[in-house]
Amino acid sequence: MNLFAPSGCARLVVKIGSALLVEADGCVRRDWLAELAAEIAGRQRDGQRVVIVSSGAIALGARRLKLAKGGRASLEDAQAAAAVGQIELSRVWAEVLGAEGLTAAQILVTPGDLEDRRRYLNAAATLARLLSLGVVPVVNENDTVATEEIRFGDNDRLAARVAQAAEANGIVLLSDVDGLYDRDPSEVGAVHLPRVEQVDAATEAMASSGSSSGMGSGGMASKLAAARIAARAGIPLAIASGRSERPLHGRHTLFAPETTASARKAWLAGGTVEAGTIHIDAGAAAALARGGSLLAAGALRIDGAFARGDLIRIAGPDGAVARGLAEYDAGDMRRLLGRRSDEHEALLGHAPRAALVHRSHMALL
């Protein structure tokens, strides 16, 4: 798959590190950012939808507050810098994307928003709706409330998690190097690796754990960790240089997914404890086999007490056919059993969701 071709990658997550976005003196690299925004706008016109994962809030806030060590001298400094810098970061993105006729949306997340199933569904639904409207989501970790114990720690890994929630087809991590080399790229004879099939011990031995700019929290080691997350989810990931004239078209290292895109649903099929079961008729089971979502019209009975976002089993006349995340709690599902979609709002008293279990959050067994 060519992540750099909109025709081959319908949804792309692009991560920008602090060193690319902020100069050493703490000022925004506005000209570079404007060029990137123009490149993103061209992709949007070609039909590709882009999610931005943007660092830079701490670096910008530290400059405004005159904090030592780029705002990373202590957790309290980092949280304060993030609170101040995030306003500036959001304003800059809104301006450069707005100049290209694009609307930006800010999304701040913590690990719980993408690890807790119910909150994950909410984040995924928000991303899906924004992308369908042609909006460019700009995502960052909510460093103002994140702690050392509960945080992603770097936006490389965050980008991999966001890609899963956004159902992205690829990830590009823009860095200060154009990919992975077999040794430190500053060494004579260092060889660029255009493709890596698997992140193993030999691959990790090539990585440096440091951040050369001193502003970010990542390095090549964190990018390899992100590549491993992406690979297990069936999403290809590229590391490319943000220093090139057209960073989304330049030389890069592509990390291949472990399997096809169905791997992103492997954790659903893999068997954590199920909170309940939906029994469905033969017609609904056939629709699921064809790749459809589970609609209420084909549901017969609900077993168990579960909440929206819980993992549930879907059973047809011949046994279990799928596992997925519930879009409604058990009580609401029982009210909708066998009913048509156009009846749901009257039955529930609020705008309904599209399905009992959406195909994006379902794995066939």
Score class of each variant (00 low, 15 high):
residue 83 A to H: 10
residue 85 G to H: 09
residue 85 G to F: 07
residue 85 G to I: 06
residue 85 G to K: 05
residue 90 S to I: 14
residue 93 W to N: 14
residue 96 V to P: 01
residue 99 A to K: 11
residue 100 E to D: 14
residue 101 G to C: 15
residue 104 A to S: 05
residue 107 I to C: 02
residue 107 I to Q: 01
residue 107 I to G: 00
residue 109 V to K: 04
residue 109 V to Q: 05
residue 110 T to E: 14
residue 110 T to Y: 02
residue 111 P to F: 06
residue 111 P to M: 05
residue 112 G to S: 14
residue 114 L to E: 01
residue 114 L to M: 13
residue 115 E to P: 03
residue 117 R to M: 12
residue 117 R to A: 08
residue 118 R to C: 02
residue 118 R to S: 12
residue 119 R to D: 09
residue 120 Y to P: 00
residue 122 N to S: 10
residue 123 A to T: 07
residue 124 A to L: 10
residue 125 A to I: 10
residue 127 L to V: 03
residue 127 L to M: 14
residue 128 A to C: 13
residue 128 A to N: 12
residue 130 L to C: 02
residue 131 L to M: 03
residue 131 L to C: 06
residue 132 S to M: 04
residue 133 L to I: 00
residue 135 V to F: 04
residue 137 P to C: 04
residue 139 V to A: 05
residue 140 N to A: 12
residue 141 E to S: 09
residue 142 N to L: 09
residue 142 N to Y: 01
residue 144 T to F: 14
residue 144 T to S: 15
residue 146 A to L: 02
residue 146 A to I: 08
residue 147 T to L: 03
residue 151 R to M: 10
residue 151 R to F: 11
residue 152 F to C: 02
residue 153 G to T: 08
residue 155 N to A: 00
residue 156 D to Q: 03
residue 156 D to C: 11
residue 157 R to S: 07
residue 158 L to A: 00
residue 159 A to Q: 01
residue 159 A to C: 01
residue 159 A to H: 01
residue 161 R to Y: 10
residue 161 R to H: 12
residue 165 A to C: 05
residue 166 A to L: 13
residue 168 A to R: 08
residue 168 A to H: 08
residue 169 N to H: 10
residue 169 N to M: 04
residue 170 G to V: 00
residue 173 L to Y: 02
residue 173 L to A: 02
residue 176 D to F: 00
residue 177 V to E: 07
residue 178 D to T: 09
residue 178 D to Q: 07
residue 179 G to I: 02
residue 179 G to M: 08
residue 181 Y to T: 01
residue 184 D to I: 01
residue 184 D to N: 05
residue 185 P to E: 00
residue 186 S to L: 07
residue 189 G to K: 03
residue 190 A to R: 05
residue 190 A to Y: 09
residue 191 V to L: 07
residue 191 V to A: 08
residue 192 H to F: 04
residue 194 P to Y: 02
residue 195 R to D: 14
residue 196 V to F: 11
residue 196 V to L: 02
residue 197 E to A: 05
residue 197 E to Q: 12
residue 198 Q to S: 06
residue 199 V to H: 12
residue 199 V to T: 09
residue 200 D to Q: 12
residue 202 A to K: 12
residue 202 A to T: 12
residue 203 T to L: 11
residue 203 T to C: 11
residue 204 E to H: 07
residue 204 E to S: 13
residue 204 E to Q: 07
residue 205 A to V: 13
residue 206 M to K: 10
residue 206 M to L: 05
residue 207 A to P: 06
residue 207 A to E: 03
residue 210 G to D: 06
residue 211 S to R: 13
residue 212 S to E: 06
residue 213 S to Q: 08
residue 213 S to V: 05
residue 213 S to Y: 09
residue 213 S to M: 12
residue 214 G to L: 09
residue 215 M to G: 02
residue 215 M to A: 07
residue 216 G to T: 11
residue 218 G to I: 13
residue 218 G to A: 11
residue 218 G to P: 07
residue 220 M to L: 03
residue 221 A to E: 06
residue 221 A to N: 04
residue 222 S to V: 03
residue 223 K to N: 10
residue 224 L to R: 01
residue 225 A to P: 02
residue 225 A to F: 11
residue 225 A to Q: 15
residue 226 A to S: 11
residue 227 A to Q: 03
residue 228 R to Y: 08
